[in-house]
Amino acid sequence: MSLRRPTSASVSLIALAAGSVSLAAEATAQEWSPLQRGSENIEVVGHLPLGGRLTVTDMGMEQELSRPYAYVSRANIVGNGQRGLDIVDLSEPSSPEVIYRWRIEADELHQGPGAMDVKHFKWRDRYYVVQSLQFAQGGPDPDMGAVVLDVTGLPDPTTVREIGRIREPEHPGGFHNIFIYKHSNGRVFLFTTVRGPYAHVYDLGRFVEGDTGGALVGRVPVPTDGSGFGGYHDMYVGYHPDTETDRFYGGGTGGYYVYDVSDIESPTLLVSMVGVSGVRFGHTVTPSPDGRYIVAETEYRYAPLRIFDLQPALEGSTEVIRTPISAWTADWQHLVHNHEVRWPFVFVSGYLDGLQVFSLQDPENPVTLGFYDTYIGPYNEDFNPIFNGTFGVDV
Rank of each mutant, 00 (worst) to 15 (best):
V258S: 04
V258L: 15
Y259L: 10
Y259V: 09
D260T: 07
V261C: 08
V261T: 10
V261H: 09
V261P: 06
S262I: 08
D263R: 09
D263Y: 06
D263T: 11
I264H: 08
I264D: 08
E265R: 12
E265T: 14
E265G: 10
E265Y: 06
E265K: 12
S266V: 10
S266N: 15
S266W: 11
P267S: 12
T268S: 13
T268N: 07
T268K: 14
L269T: 10
L269G: 13
L270V: 12
L270K: 06
L270P: 02
L270M: 13
V271G: 03
V271W: 01
V271I: 14
S272Y: 02
S272K: 14
S272R: 13
M273Y: 04
M273W: 03
M273H: 06
M273S: 08
M273T: 12
V274N: 02
V274I: 15
V274E: 11
V274D: 02
G275Q: 05
G275K: 04
V276M: 01
G278H: 02
V279S: 00
R280W: 10
R280I: 12
R280Y: 13
R280L: 13
R280T: 14
R280G: 15
F281C: 07
F281P: 04
G282A: 08
T284G: 07
T286F: 04
T286H: 06
T286Q: 13
P287V: 03
P287I: 03
P289G: 07
P289E: 10
D290M: 05
D290P: 03
G291R: 05
G291N: 11
G291K: 06
R292L: 05
R292Q: 14
R292Y: 05
Y293C: 01
Y293H: 06
I294Q: 15
I294N: 04
V295H: 04
V295W: 06
V295Q: 04
A296Y: 01
E297K: 11
E297T: 12
T298H: 11
T298C: 04
Y300W: 12
Y300C: 08
R301E: 14
R301T: 14
Y302Q: 13
A303W: 00
A303S: 15
P304N: 08
P304R: 06
P304G: 08
P304Y: 05
L305Q: 12
L305Y: 13
R306C: 00
I307M: 05
F308M: 01
F308V: 00
F308Q: 00
F308W: 01
D309T: 00
D309I: 00
L310K: 02
L310Q: 13
L310M: 15
L310S: 10
Q311G: 09
A313T: 10
L314W: 12
L314R: 14
L314E: 12
E315D: 15
E315P: 04
G316S: 10
G316H: 09
T318K: 09
T318N: 09
E319L: 10
E319I: 06
E319T: 15
E319H: 09
V320Q: 13
V320H: 05
V320G: 05
R322N: 12
R322H: 11
R322L: 05
R322Y: 03
T323N: 06
T323P: 02
T323L: 02
T323V: 13
P324N: 07
P324G: 07
P324S: 08
P324L: 05
W328D: 02
W328A: 05
W328G: 02
W328P: 03
T329V: 09
